[in-house]
Amino acid sequence: MIDGEYHRGGGYLTKREAQEAERFLCPNRKMAFGELCDKYISWIRSRNQSAAWVYEKILFVKKHLSPWFTKPVDDISRGHIEEHLLRRAQAVSTATANKDLKFIKAIFSFGVQMGYCSGNPASAISRMPTEERLKYVPPLDDFMKVYMVARPVEKRLLALLFCTAARVGEILNLRWEDVADSYLILRSRKHKEGRLRERKIPLNPVMKEAFDFLSTHVSRGRKEGFVFQNPRGEGNRYLRRPKLMRSLCEKAGVRSFGFHSIRHLATSCLMREGESIQTLKDYLGHAKITTTQIYVHSLEDSLSVAAQKLGNLFNKYSIKSSKNSINVDKNAKNVQNCTSKKVV
């Protein structure tokens, strides 16, 4: 790409050779923003980031940043970025705008480090204020209603999500070599360098039954490849279905919740059973205990108990006061009747 236009047929064998020739032939050429995005996507791919995360960023760049592709990198100003963020905040939410800002900052920071641009126009832009909302955690009864209306494979998925308190991606990425007789190994990619972090979860009878069923009815006795396999493609991973939980909740007649809410529900249940927050941190695979505290919903329960007590006190004393007011009204009527008789 030169000055926003693609030139093909130059006789170069690889894209790298063509780029080297561009730098040699056009040393003072200003890089277009689209080319910077291509280089950044290639760089994050080389950092061993998850394929799903990289694909999400590619879609975002193509859908929302394409109007800037032909602009030279140094011509994109803070005003362009703020206009985009305001539009996204109005169309979706301020949280989405802040997510976009973080990614745009990363693109320009990469460009500055590599010498592709002179500065980062997004560095001085502050995050938009967001409303802190408590995440909805379904009651255990609602979860069991959803479990009862699910199909056999979906039931085992829900059972494993609840018993392991794992992320849905960790369960769907499970391979049979990760499942032993007494434990399973979950892997999550939460490190800056993109390395997988492993944790060992002991198996309980519910998990063992789920794996026995999946081994017999899904893998057909062959314990190889993914545990949850896509029925449309033999050996492929069971794809995440974002509408699955919504349809199951509608079928069960309960308020809609997602896969990650099951992780919060399991954590709340463990807290009610008296597990320490350090145990929860290790079980959930968190690097910091402050992250685990986000999952603790015992405060909500204690607040509801306190509100219930205040309501009971109010009802108790309101009944007493109403009885007293009735007696006062009766006495007032008696006095009024007596005075009226005397007057007559």
Rank of each mutant, 00 (worst) to 15 (best):
Q229V: 05
I171W: 03
S182F: 09
S118E: 08
A52T: 02
M207I: 11
R23C: 02
D212F: 14
S215F: 10
C37H: 02
E198R: 14
L248H: 01
Q229T: 01
E22N: 07
N315A: 14
S77V: 03
V343L: 15
H7L: 13
W68F: 09
Q19W: 06
A266I: 04
S302P: 00
E193C: 05
E154T: 13
L160Q: 11
V112S: 10
H64C: 03
P27K: 04
E22W: 02
N120W: 08
K155L: 09
P27V: 05
R87P: 02
D3V: 01
K200F: 07
T291P: 00
D74R: 08
N204F: 08
A266F: 01
I294K: 11
A150F: 11
K15M: 11
K341Y: 13
L248G: 02
L59C: 06
G11W: 04
T290W: 00
K342V: 15
R222W: 10
I326A: 13
K135L: 15
N236C: 06
S77Y: 03
G253P: 07
W53D: 01
L65D: 10
G10P: 13
S318M: 10
I76H: 03
P205A: 11
V206W: 08
R237N: 04
K57R: 12
G225E: 02
S188G: 14
L239M: 11
Q278G: 07
L134A: 15
K145A: 10
G258S: 08
W176T: 12
R232A: 05
L13V: 02
R220K: 12
Y283R: 06
R127W: 06
A210T: 10
R45L: 03
A51F: 00
V146H: 11
E193P: 07
V218W: 08
A52Q: 06
D301M: 08
R151V: 07
P27D: 03
H260G: 12
W176H: 05
S325V: 09
I125P: 11
R263H: 06
G285A: 04
